[in-house]
């Protein structure tokens, strides 16, 4: 075979085949991310990927970029440190729902409140995949997980609404079925300045789809195709996902707000005479 897949130069091919299950949507999101990176034409030295723990956390290990695999839930604090040390770096946090909004939930809301210049890509599969399908803060009511055999009774997070209400400047949601829109959204997330949040609904056939009788990965993708509705600019209050309910996709929020560093430099230069604005240590 003389032709080579263009995405292979962005992957650590010695680690492929990856550990993700057949029908898992994570590989599809990685495909879209690599294509979005190619379209932004950013030098790869100026990009950094930070992941936490979980199935999605392995993305950082498979991408041949400046990637970091951090402790559980602490992807955002690590990324903040990286970004503030070198503000020219574009830091992308690529992690799962269990990592970002359950154990790392407080970091998530604080980073959004301060408007740290981070791109957050949250792959939501409604469950804790790697540890065996326990109930997650995103599991819809009535869904079966290993820890809720009679159906979940906890109200889940509506992630776009959470991000919007704490001050994210960009909020979008797509499923792994919408690969073209997902690639465009990832490009926008990488180029946007400020706390930008992209939620990706991804199938987990082994733990979520099988227990909830949705079927394998392909059946879940068909479910997304039939039950998703594109509503750009929708009020994020209305986009909660119910069990086997419709999935509202689109770009919900795109606004401008000064970032943490801009605010800090402005405030301190007002109050401190001869203040030299901070623009990184390197």
């Amino acid at each position: 075979m003389s032709e080579r897949n263009i995405i292979e130069e962005y992957l650590r091919m010695d680690r492929i085949p990856h550990i993700w299950c057949p029908g898992c949507g994570l590989g599809t999101t990685v495909n879209c991310f690599i294509r979005a990176l190619q379209q932004t034409k950013l030098p790869l030295d100026n990009i950094s990927i930070v992941s936490g723990i979980g199935c999605t956390g392995r993305v950082a290990g498979y991408l041949k970029l400046n990637s970091f695999h951090t402790t559980h839930g602490r992807a955002i604090p690590f990324a903040i440190g990286l970004q503030l040390t070198n503000p020219k770096l574009k830091v992308v946090v690529y992690s799962g729902d269990g990592d970002l909004v359950s154990i790392g939930g407080n970091h998530f809301i604080q980073a959004a409140r301060r408007n740290m210049d981070l791109a957050i890509i949250c792959v939501n599969n409604f469950t804790y995949g790697m540890t065996g399908g326990q109930v997650a803060p995103t599991t819809p009511v009535d869904a079966v997980a290993t820890t809720t055999p009679y159906g979940n009774f906890e109200e889940p997070f509506n992630l776009p609404h959470l991000a919007d209400s704490v001050g994210a400047v960009y909020v979008a949601r797509w499923t792994t079925y919408h690969v073209m829109q997902l690639t465009r959204a990832m490009k926008e997330v990488i180029q946007k300045k400020g706390f930008s949040f992209l939620e990706i609904i991804s199938p987990c056939p082994t733990l979520y789809g099988r227990r909830n009788k949705i079927g394998d990965g392909l059946e879940m993708m068909k479910f997304y195709k039939e039950n998703s509705e594109i509503r750009n600019g929708a009020n994020t209050k209305d986009v909660a996902i119910g069990f086997k309910g419709p999935i509202i996709c689109g770009k919900f929020v795109d606004k401008e707000r000064p970032t943490f560093l801009e605010n800090m430099n402005q405030k301190l230069s007002e109050r401190i005479p001869n203040y030299k604005p901070y623009n990184g240590l390197v």
């Binding site: 992957l11 990856h18 590989g27």
Partner: peptide, 10 residues
């Protein structure tokens, strides 16, 4: 190639 989760087709 965009859909393939295993980077096996393009």
């Amino acid at each position: 190639g965009m859909y393939c989760p295993d980077f096996a087709i393009f």
